[in-house]
Design a binder for these strands. Structure first.
Length: 258
DNA sequence: AAGATTCCCAACCGCATTTCG
DNA sequence: ACGAAATGCGGTTGGGAATCT
């Protein structure tokens, strides 16, 4: 399914993603995170714009995504939260782990919207604001949008905490943590004590200039980077391990705080 | 069997918001 | 404080698959 792929006037590929492109993007993001979507496609060896890569990762390649039919519970949740929040798809998606905003949006338009015509809208039990009032109230007087009100536990310290402090958006934290770890939080130091990211980056620069080689033996929890980085492997291994831990933590936290 | 229509969903686009220098 | 760049969000579109006639 999807659109026929083609190359635009800037040499950027558009339309449906090929398996090869998916593999390149997946392998790259799983190893190094999305430190900068704009630059990422260049390093990942994908002829796509950053925006397109981000979308593909978020909606299709990201680990932990559920696919297929919606359960009754999920359907009820969507109805309930759409009632409260309106078309705040990303906020609704945050309530359904494993589902993307795009997916929920599509589901709403193709399934629930039709059915809602048959079923009268559910009465708002707690007098929650309607879509419109929610919108206006949330944006007044500097109040954060309701979709961004979740906060993470205070007791978090260390690299994770500094990342989390930089973002109050839980749903953003899930997917953005790795990029912030490296780009926004540039003072973060890998566990092995190597303090200069730039230095390390420069030392392995040859990697970036080499054509991308898909490592099919890649294992998220046990990736052997030695063929690529030699002695620098530790930098990236600890970096990627930190990213994984951070993501796991966030996913777990969301599970525990529906 | 084949053409028409509808459904579904991946992907694009434009705008808003956030971040950074 | 300001502007540019990066990122995120929601609406819309395009096209393959499924269904209907």
């Amino acid at each position: 399914m999807g659109r026929i792929s083609f190359t635009d006037e800037n040499g950027m590929k558009k339309g449906a993603w090929s398996e090869e492109e998916d593999n390149k993007l997946r392998a790259y993001v799983q190893r190094y995170g999305h430190w900068n979507w704009r630059q990422l496609p260049k390093f990942a060896g994908v002829a796509r714009c950053g925006k397109s890569c981000r979308l593909r990762w978020m909606n299709y390649l990201r680990p932990g995504l559920k696919r297929g039919k919606y359960t009754k519970e999920e359907e009820d949740l969507i109805r309930e939260w759409h009632d409260k929040l309106g078309n705040k798809w990303s906020a609704i998606a945050a309530k359904l782990p494993g589902r993307t905003d795009n997916e929920i949006k599509n589901y709403w338009h193709t399934q629930l919207k039709k059915r809602m015509k048959k079923i009268p809208p559910t009465k708002n039990p707690a007098g929650m604001p309607t879509e419109d009032s929610c919108k206006s109230e949330a944006n007044q007087e500097g109040q954060p949008d309701i979709s961004h009100q979740e906060e993470l536990p205070q007791e978090n310290v260390g690299p994770e905490a500094s990342v989390l402090q930089s973002s109050e958006r839980i749903e953003t934290s899930i997917t953005q943590s790795s990029s912030e770890m490296s780009s926004s939080n540039s003072n973060w130091v890998p566990e092995d004590g190597i303090s200069s990211w730039d230095q390390s980056f420069a030392e392995v620069e040859s990697f970036w200039s080499e054509p991308f080689v898909l490592d099919t033996s890649y294992n998220q929890n046990n990736c052997d980077l030695s063929p690529l980085f030699g002695d620098q492997e530790g930098v990236f291994a600890s970096y990627s391990s930190c990213l994984d831990d951070n993501n796991d933590f966030l996913y777990q936290w969301i599970e525990d705080h529906p």
